[in-house]
Design a protein around this nucleic acid. Structure first.
Length: 507
RNA sequence: UCCUUCUUAGCUCAGCUGGUUAGAGCACAUGACUGUUAAUCAUGGGGUCCCUGGUUCGAGCCCAGGAGAGGGAGCCA
């Protein structure tokens, strides 16, 4: 018999089909077994009735354990109550591989446990949806650059030179010499762009930062376009068009997946609006609360956020106390106790998060109030400023001391470098860093010395300026940060199949 | 590197001021139930209370050191 996929069932109403997959859930009563089958393309409830199948098939259905693989045949019937709108009335069923004691249960788990079981966690609906969205984003990135005439290039992963200092590099042994895992393909991208005009790299990057925060990975995927004859403003135009393109494709093609993870799409639909472009000076004034945005003040907004958190803490504490009291009342049904217990667990988790926020926000307020002009924006500063906007913002013209050596000095004011950071809304912070590149050999040489980088490693890079230099610009986008924001995930670790981060090398 | 919260059954968590034999729900096993959506109900097997040392008549609880995890700062995409 011809094999079918769950995503195609709507075309098969009334037909007899054979499906293969895994049992993601099972419920049973006397003469009925409900198996929720997943096959990678979707989920579908399959009903096995003792009246319509023979005894051995019914016994096989009854003994199916969670995540056992199986093949079944049945009739496709419309049923509005089901996810996908259809169910299968099974006529035949056989187990392929039995799963004994599948560790991920049908309830909430802690992060550490789930990360240890990442290879199995990927099978769950939420993780599946995130990976589908990640796939769409990757595809759309290639689609955009290819249709804009960019040439994709692969930069080396072993490098002898550190482009932004050595402190965050993973050192490896390269035939007896030290080599570093790439932190950025940008310098090589520039060289390639002098040959091709417009290029983009798409590859892994490694940063040995001992960071344990919701936005850091030790291994992540970066997209780095580099364009000849572009200045910083052309660069910002491109970034804006690019992000708009990717977001619109995700909205158009991942409606189901976004709904599955509960991502409301209002903010994503805003992305058609122009992205505000702020200079560093303006951004600092906004962070310090000296300048309002659409009537919103950063400090006041943060203070009211803190007040909201504290109100919510009081509410949650009250509800927990009430439910705990309720459980104690005699004669309560076991099911009702269980329900209340589950609610209490959930509320306690929320309380933990809220208390964490209540600890963090005062620190952020402090950091925003006392922001010293001339320093880089910290993670909390980014959160503070992006909360005031409903679209990504671009901050450009940074004090040259805090930015990389290769950024071009602003010709109108040499205190500034022509770098640009794109900060995502909803508190997600930096997703893109880029800028116009320095073209002057002498200025570059000075900067390399200033950063105490080994000159001999950069001779080839200086050659790009010696032989026909032109204005050019580019940027780097962190794929996982984009996925995390578009899916509104609480942490980057869910945005990549197998995250590598401080303290996490398995599985 | 620093600050902060945490570690009790396979999982998620209770465990009061240090005091008898450490509990619940889920999962698992057996049984009941013909439409369930984390199904429900009954029964019952399951413990190195993270590790090491200390205080005490007595430690899951107190103290010291260590390990691991969550969140944040710095740094970054």
């Amino acid at each position: 018999m011809q094999k079918y996929l769950i995503k195609d069932l709507e075309k098969c109403e009334g037909q007899l089909v054979t499906l293969s997959g895994w049992a993601s859930n099972k419920r049973e009563s006397k003469g009925l077994v409900f198996i929720v089958l997943r096959d990678g393309t979707g989920w579908c409830q399959c009903v096995v009735s003792a009246e319509t199948v023979n005894e051995s098939v019914f016994e096989a259905a009854r003994s199916v354990s969670l995540e056992s693989s199986l093949t079944l045949t049945g009739k496709v019937v419309k049923d509005e109550r089901q996810m996908g709108g259809f169910e299968i009335q099974v006529t035949d069923l056989a187990t392929i591989g039995e799963a004994v004691d599948y560790p991920i249960a049908k309830k909430e788990h802690g992060v550490d446990f789930l990360m240890d079981k990442r290879h199995l966690w990927l099978r769950s609906q939420r993780q599946w949806a995130i990976m589908k969205i990640r796939n769409q984003i990757i595809f759309s990135i290639h689609e955009f650059f290819q249709q804009e005439g960019f040439v994709q290039m692969d930069a080396p992963l072993f490098t002898g030179n550190a482009c932004e200092g050595t402190s965050n590099l993973f050192e490896t042994d390269f035939y007896g010499d030290p080599a570093y895992l790439s932190q950025s393909g940008q310098l090589y991208g520039e060289a390639m762009a002098f040959a091709m005009g417009k290029i983009y790299t798409f590859g892994p990057t490694f940063r040995a930062e001992k960071s344990k925060t919701r936005r850091h990975l030790s291994e992540f995927w970066m997209i780095e376009p580099e364009m000849m004859f572009y200045d910083i403003f052309d660069n910002m135009d491109l970034i804006e068009n690019f992000l708009r393109f990717v977001v619109s494709k995700v909205l158009a093609n991942c409606e189901k997946e976004l709904a599955l993870i509960g991502r409301e799409t209002e903010v994503l639909k805003n992305i058609v609006k122009p992205f505000p472009r702020l200079t560093y000076d303006e951004a600092v004034r906004i962070i310090k609360g000296e300048q309002d945005v659409n009537g919103k003040n950063s400090i006041l907004t943060l203070e009211s956020d803190l007040a909201l958190v504290q109100t919510r803490i009081a509410e949650v504490e009250k509800e927990i106390a009430e439910r705990e009291e309720k459980i104690k009342t005699p004669g309560m049904k076991k099911g009702e106790i269980g329900f209340n217990q589950a609610q209490i667990d959930k509320l306690k988790h929320e309380l933990g998060d809220l208390e964490e926020q209540a600890r963090n926000i005062p620190q952020w307020l402090n950091s925003a109030r006392n922001f010293t002009y001339g320093s880089d924006l910290g993670g909390s500063d980014e959160t503070v400023i992006t909360r005031l906007f409903d679209v990504p913002i671009m901050v450009y013209n940074w004090p040259h001391e805090v930015k990389a050596f290769y950024l071009k000095r602003d010709p109108d004011n040499n205190k500034f470098a022509r770098g640009v950071d794109v900060l995502a809304p909803e508190g997600y912070g930096e997703i893109v860093g880029g800028g116009e590149r320095e073209t002057d050999v002498q200025l570059l040489t000075d900067k390399i010395n200033e950063h105490q980088l080994p000159m001999e490693a950069f001779e080839w890079y200086l050659d790009l300026r010696r032989y026909g230099t032109v204005p050019h610009a580019g940027f780097g986008l962190g794929l996982e940060r984009l996925v995390t924001w578009l899916c509104k995930l609480p942490h980057v670790r869910e945005s990549i199949p197998f995250p590598r981060m401080y303290g996490r090398l398995l599985p």
